[in-house]
């Protein structure tokens, strides 16, 4: 009896894992087989991966470029914003924090439409990668701000800064000597989240992209729509290889930041 009650959760867990993992494995295998409809017996090949590289390497580099640009912007905007919110706790700060988080509650499509309506007529901007960047920054900024803010809120920032000031450090020195180093775990967790989200972002990007500016997920949708299944599956494989290490690093960094918060 006891063994049954014990084994039921295990079976459920294994089934859930299988439910999630089998399509992934199948997709990966599809990207590596010569002919998916004839199955594995047709043999394994890297031809499709090579073809993805030929067709979509531009998308891969654009995505990496966008993610890094997005990271730089969210660092420059997000870290000082989190610092300002942490130093001035109060009603106004709470409201501002909610405002920064607002893009999370609005569907990416709606956000993209708003951007298009407002800036779509600016020709140079509309067709530039920086147009997509604006969308990505809007979407990822709250993650950076919240991550840094939670670490800053957990340390006695006011006393630390007063200590530094009493030793002769001006505001800029205090920010770079005291605030940034002590917020580092939060900054790192935020940075990995921003990069991961930017690389994987589809909703907004799909609305904002042009035929010359396809990011990784947009290219993926494109390949499923217009290429043979093996190429699209190989594309998924490439996507995995890029995003999984980032996800693991993000988990690790968040856990580290969380330890400080507690």
């Amino acid at each position: 009896m006891k063994s049954v009650t014990k084994s039921i959760p295990l079976i459920v867990t294994l089934l859930a894992c299988a439910f999630l993992l089998i399509p992934i494995i199948q997709s990966v295998l599809a990207g590596l087989t010569v002919n998916y409809f004839r199955g594995l017996s047709s043999g394994l090949t890297l031809k499709w991966v090579g073809q993805v590289w030929e067709l979509y390497s531009g998308s891969i580099f654009l995505s990496i470029w966008l993610a890094l640009a997005c990271l730089v912007v969210t660092l420059i905007l997000g870290v000082p914003a989190a610092y300002a919110l942490a130093r001035n706790p109060g009603r106004a700060s709470r409201i501002l924090e909610e405002f920064i988080s607002l893009p999370l509650a609005i569907p990416g499509l709606a956000l993209a439409l708003a951007l298009l309506q407002l800036y779509g007529t600016l020709q140079g901007f509309r067709t530039s990668w920086s147009f997509i960047l604006v969308g990505h920054v809007l979407y990822t900024l709250p993650f950076m701000v919240r991550s840094v803010l939670s670490v800053l809120a957990a340390i006695d920032l006011k006393s630390l800064e007063e200590g530094a000031a009493s030793l002769g450090a001006g505001p800029a020195r205090r920010f770079f000597d005291i605030v940034v180093p002590n917020a580092l775990p939060g900054i790192l967790a935020g940075a990995l989240t921003v990069v991961t989200l930017s690389i994987g972002e589809f909703n907004l990007t799909w609305m904002l992209h042009t035929p010359y500016l396809k990011t990784l997920p947009v290219g993926l949708a494109d390949s499923y729509a217009s290429m043979r299944l093996e190429v699209a599956s190989a594309y998924t494989l490439v996507f995995f290889v890029m995003i999984v290490p980032l996800l693991i690093a993000m988990q690790w960094a968040s856990a580290r930041a969380q330890r400080i918060v507690q």
């Binding site: 200590g163 530094a164 000031a165 009493s166 030793l167 002769g168 001006g170 005291i178 002590n182």
Partner: peptide
């Protein structure tokens, strides 16, 4: 004068030592 130019030394109740 601001605190950083007064050339004072201060010991805080929480010590406010820099953990980094």
């Amino acid at each position: 004068q601001s605190v950083e130019t007064r050339k004072i030394g201060m010991v805080f109740q929480s010590y406010a030592l820099f953990p980094n």
